[in-house]
């Protein structure tokens, strides 16, 4: 047990690397209320862009920024398919995910690029510190953005489209903007993960959306969702907790590495089902209590409040 706790820096580092991706998923899944499957493709796009630029001698920080931009473009495409092409949200994401596979292959030229001989953003400093700084800056920028007029309109787009449209926001634009920021973050995550693991792989994005969802849901369950500030913090913690759970699962001798995706799916299922059951049970007990109260109050005068 102590042994496991001593080794926690590994999962925490991974959690921070993937936290950017989880924040991206949070923007689409929670804020825009748009389950965006582009993520599986755009994560690899980020890795691919960063890897190909770095191996061609571009400054790794610039390459990482370029990955962010590439992800944004992918998000814009999904947004255009959905808003202008009127294609169902899930389907727009799936279409882009498939299209991105070919595009990523074109970018990389081969299924796997090694970065072990290259200069990367994690030079002599431990990646965990660099990631901590990047993630905190990213989180604070997002929090600030969601307090601006544009950010409020974006949040309202997911909360009540009809309302924000009646106040003059173009919800097509806000949807596209949200998708582009989200996929930018996902690609950024892909870029840092590739550098940390010293290679970019064409299959690295597979299942990413579910990992993102797991992080968002776990984080919200643990830290709650009071404000945007709190929820983004929760999502980051969720990403770290997810990695710790995965690391713990690896400690179980009869589990294999390929079981990871099943474990992730089970985590998401539990996290989605438990709150629903809880809510239903709470509602029932509340309804029972209220009916007893009302029964007791019958005959007495009713008080009316607005």
């Amino acid at each position: 047990m102590l042994d496991f706790v001593m080794k926690l820096d590994g999962p925490i580092e991974l959690g921070l690397l993937y936290a950017l991706m989880a924040l991206g998923v949070y923007i689409t899944f929670r804020i825009l209320d748009f389950p965006d499957l582009t993520v599986d493709g755009s994560f690899t796009t980020g890795a691919a862009i960063a890897a190909i630029l770095i191996t061609n001698g571009v400054n790794p920080w610039l390459a990482t920024l370029a990955a962010f931009a590439g992800g944004m473009v992918a998000g814009i495409c999904t947004g255009l398919l959905h808003t202008k092409g009127k294609i169902n949200g899930l389907l727009s994401g799936i279409i882009m995910m498939i299209a991105l596979y070919s595009i990523n292959m074109r970018i990389m030229g081969k299924p796997n690029i090694s970065l072990s001989q290259e200069e990367i953003i994690f030079g002599s400093i431990d990646p965990i510190y660099i990631m901590l700084v990047i993630v905190i800056i990213g989180k604070l920028l997002l929090d600030a953005f969601f307090r601006t007029d544009l950010g409020l309109a974006l949040r309202a787009t997911g909360d009540n489209k009809r309302m924000i449209r009646s106040f003059g926001a173009n919800t097509d634009t806000t949807t596209i903007l949200g998708l582009s920021i989200s996929n930018g973050l996902v690609a950024l995550s892909g870029a840092v993960v590739a550098q940390q693991s010293s290679f970019a792989d064409i299959g690295s994005g597979i299942g990413m959306i579910v990992i993102g969802l797991a992080s968002v849901i776990i984080g919200e369950a643990v830290l709650g969702t009071g404000s945007v500030f709190r929820t983004t913090l929760a999502v980051i913690c969720g990403s770290i907790i997810y990695r710790i759970v995965v690391a713990a699962a690896y400690e179980i001798p009869w589990l294999e590495a390929s079981d990871l995706k099943l474990i992730t799916a089970v985590i998401v299922i539990i996290a989605l089902v438990v709150p629903t059951i809880n809510r239903a049970m709470k509602q029932r007990s509340q309804a029972r209590r209220r009916s007893i109260e009302l029964l007791a109050a019958q005959g007495k005068s009713k008080g009316g409040a607005l």
């Binding site: 953005f145 307090r147 601006t148 007029d149 544009l150 409020l152 309109a153």
Partner: peptide, 8 residues
């Protein structure tokens, strides 16, 4: 009005 990056 247009919505920009000023605090809401």
């Amino acid at each position: 009005q247009s919505r920009g990056l000023s605090i809401g």
